[in-house]
Computed example of a mutant assay.
Amino acid sequence: MRALLIVNPNATTTTPAGRDRLAHALSSRTRLTVAHTTHRGHAADLARSAHADGMDVVIAHGGDGTVNEIVNGLLGPSPDRGTDPSLPRLAVVPGGSANVFARSLGIAADPMEATEQLLPLLAEHVSRRIGLGHCDGRWFVFNAGLGLDAQVCEAIDLSRLAGKKVTSARYVRHAITQFFASRRIEPALTLELPGQEPVTGVYYAFVSNSSPWTFLDTRPVHTNPGTSFGSGLGVFAMATMRVLPSLRVVRQLLARNGDPSSPHLLRADDVTRVRARSTRPIGLQVDGDYLGLRTDVEFVSVPSILEVVAPAQ
Rank of each mutant, 00 (worst) to 15 (best):
R2M: 07
L5E: 00
A11C: 07
T12H: 01
R21F: 06
A25V: 10
L26Y: 06
S28R: 15
R31D: 12
L32E: 04
H39G: 06
D45W: 02
A50G: 00
A50V: 03
I59R: 13
H61K: 05
G63M: 03
D64H: 07
D64M: 10
N68V: 03
V71P: 02
L74G: 04
S78R: 13
P79N: 12
S86E: 15
P88K: 11
S97F: 13
L105E: 09
L105C: 12
G106R: 12
E116W: 07
L121N: 01
F140I: 01
G147M: 11
D149C: 12
Q151S: 14
C153L: 02
S159A: 13
S159Y: 03
G163P: 06
T167W: 05
I176H: 07
F179A: 04
E186R: 15
A188G: 11
A188W: 00
A188L: 13
G195P: 08
P198V: 14
P198C: 09
T200V: 10
T200F: 02
G201N: 07
Y204N: 05
Y204A: 11
F206W: 08
F215G: 01
D217H: 07
D217S: 13
T223K: 08
G232E: 05
V235G: 03
A239E: 04
T240E: 05
M241P: 00
L244T: 06
V249F: 11
R251V: 00
L253K: 05
R256S: 15
N257I: 00
G258T: 06
D259Q: 15
R267F: 09
V271S: 01
V271A: 01
R275V: 03
R277A: 13
R277K: 15
T279R: 15
V286A: 04
L293S: 11
R294T: 07
A310D: 00
